[in-house]
Structure formats: C-alpha cells, structure tokens
Simulated assay, not measured.
Amino acid sequence: MKNFSSHSPLQNPQPSTTPLNPETGRGGEEKEEDQKARCEWDFNLSAVISSSDAGSTPSDAIGVVEFNQNDSFLATGGIARKIRIYSLEKSLESCQKVETGVKFLDHAAACEFYICTPAKLSSIKWKPGSGSRVIGSGDYDGVVMEYDLEKRVPVFERDEHGGRRVWSMDYSHWDPTIGASGSDDGTMQMWDPRCDGGKCLAVVQPNRVARSPVCCVEFNPFGRPLVAVGCADRRIYGYDVRNLENPVLLLDGHQQAVTYTKFLDSRTIVSSAIDGCLMMWDTEDQRPIRTYRGHVNTRRFVGLSVWRNGGLLSCGSENNQVFVYDKRWGEPIWVRGFAPAVQPRSEPGFVSGVCWRQAGDERCMLVAGGSDGVLQVFEGERKSCS
C-alpha cells in the first residue's frame, strides 16, 4: 500500500518558511467567514463492493480509484496487481438490494474484467482522446505502462526512473496527448507515448539540492499549459510545459510531504499532505486561500478528489473514515466510517482512495476504496431550500 514507512526518504523533508494563520491558512492577512460549516447535501451509502473470500488481506488494498472522462466506467488499482474495470450502470443494477437500501455485490460479479499487472500500482489514469480504450499506470517498480482495454494487452512501456517507485502519472488534456510521471528518484519526466519507448521530452528535478521525491503530478485540465508537481520537500511547483527550465509558481505552506494536487478550476489548486490537512491555493497570487482540517493523515496516501460542479472536496483518513469538505469552510461537512475488517489485522484499516463522479449539479456520487479492498459508493442530493 502507498505509505510513508519508517525507512522512507520522505520522513525528514526541509522545513517550510511560510508563516500561516492556523485558523485560516491565509498567511495571516484575511479572515475566514464567521460562518460555521454546514452540509447542504444529504449523503447516503448506496452500494458496497467487496470480496466474497473469508476475510480481507493487505494484498487487497485499493490505492487509486478513477472515473473515465464520461463517468460511465470506474477503474481501480493497488496492491493486488490488477486494474479492475467496472461499468457503473451494470454494476449497480446487478446488486442485491436489502432493506437498508444498500446494495451489496462481490468484486467478481461487479467487475466487467480485470488486467493483471507486473507490479503493485500506485497510480492509474484514463488516457484522454482514447474513447476510454486506453488506461495508463505507474507502479512500484518505476515503470509507466499503457493498456488497451479492448484487447486487454499492454501497448506501451516506459522504464526511465531507474527502478525507483513511480508515485504518480498523468496525461495532458490537449492534442497531441503527452504524459508525465513523478518518482522517488526526485524527477518529474515528461514523455510522448506515441514514440517508441516513450521519448523523453523533459526531465525536471524540482528540488535540485535535496533531490526530494516527487509524489504527485497533474496537468491543468482547463487548457492552461501548466503542470503541478507536489514533492516531499513540502512544496508544490508549477511549470509551464512550453518551458520547463524553471518553475513559474511555487506554493509553500504545508508542513510535511505533499501527496496530491488537484485543479479545482483553471487557477485554483487543492493539495493534500501528510501534515493532516488540505489546502486550497490561488495560482495567480501564489497564496493559500483556505486550510481544511479534520481527517487523520500522518504517513499514508489516503486519496484526494474534487467535485468541481458542487465545490466539494473529499479525502480518506487513517482512522478508516471518508471526509467531505465544502470549499467554503475549513471543517468537514460530512464524515462516514468504513466498517472494520472482518478478521484481525496487523494494522487498523484506512480509506486509501476516493473519486468524485464529475457529472451533475444537484446530485453527486463519491466512490471510496479501503485498505481492506472494499469499495463503497455514496450518493448525495442537494437539500431542498425551505
């Protein structure tokens, strides 16, 4: 499972120098609204997808959950060395519904098909422009691969990180599509999957002194030629893909390694770190807008997803709960715990991956995966105004 163990190079990153107001996360200049966080949504657990095997094991752990571009398919990856593909409509329709309204299904029945991978997976991404036919992955052996989901075979492989774990990979959202991957080797590499062997377009080392591991990479999906890179040195670097020599922005405010970055809109980034908080940033001013606290995150990747239409954020937690934040308030608006594992485990369970379905305005769907290999599907509906 993706985590920061005692021997990880991420345990002693460089100290941050940006002073923050602990209440607002705005550098001490602006005050957050004097308004308590409120939930304007009714959330309910609608489906549970688990294994019928007697008890779950750490090898079932789900590390990443991703909807495709039109929100019709769901892909998961993790320790099991499998990319599982679920048809959202078919999976939910075939569930057995009980009196509580929750639908239960076994992975074998819910999964359309799966592809075995040579190593544990840390990241998966649907390739834009492929009609949901191609999915990419980054793994613990430092390899980036692409799979043709119709033929169910690998069609591309890139092994240029020296065998060091790839924590994250992503694709650009323009044509031609290029890819980027971040690794324990301290680099973000940009490459062209159309070329044999994935021709390297650029190698970026954000922290040239400490060579801090790169934990997350994401292209701006709104058309701007910007790629965000989160590192173990607690900082987020932004690069113009047309000139990668030096970063065009630097976001400094987290107290520990940055594990995820997500674009909420064309100029706003939400980040997560193992300091137990999320932060929202204005990339134009390069200043924090708000800090979100409540979940537990001190050593693991617990997932981060943003629902842009509704302005909601979600992450997992090391206390085995799913957290939802409204972007307007720093406290969670909704928390739901996962059921404890059936059999005793060497470590307590935790929620390890989350993903919002981007469709809709008044209704939403959040899928969360756990370290026990269980998927839970939550549906939300905006409360009516009285």
Rank of each mutant, 00 (worst) to 15 (best):
N243M: 11
K31G: 12
A273P: 06
D275K: 09
V153L: 15
P206D: 07
F43I: 14
E284A: 15
R26T: 15
W307L: 15
G27C: 09
D275A: 11
I269Q: 08
S56D: 08
R84P: 01
V270N: 02
G276V: 09
F156L: 12
P118F: 03
H295Q: 15
S91G: 11
P19S: 13
V258K: 00
R235W: 00
T261K: 09
V374Y: 01
S51Y: 05
G223I: 02
A37C: 11
D185R: 08
N320D: 14
L226G: 01
D282V: 07
S181T: 05
V241D: 03
I49V: 14
V324P: 00
G303A: 11
C195V: 11
S137I: 10
D170F: 01
C315D: 00
C195Q: 15
M365G: 05
V227L: 07
P288I: 02
C277H: 06
R235C: 11
G101S: 10
R293C: 10
I333G: 04
C216A: 07
D275N: 10
H107S: 03
M145L: 12
L74C: 06
T268Y: 03
Y140W: 13
N243P: 07
Q286R: 13
C111G: 03
P348Y: 09
A109W: 03
A232I: 03
H7M: 13
G316I: 06
T261P: 08
K97E: 13
L250D: 01
T268L: 09
P22S: 14
G138V: 02
G138F: 02
D252V: 06
P9N: 09
R208T: 13
G373N: 06
V374Q: 09
T298Q: 14
I274Q: 07
W281V: 06
N3H: 14
V270Q: 02
Y292D: 04
D71Q: 13
G179K: 00
D233N: 10
K127Q: 14
P247S: 08
G142R: 04
G25W: 05
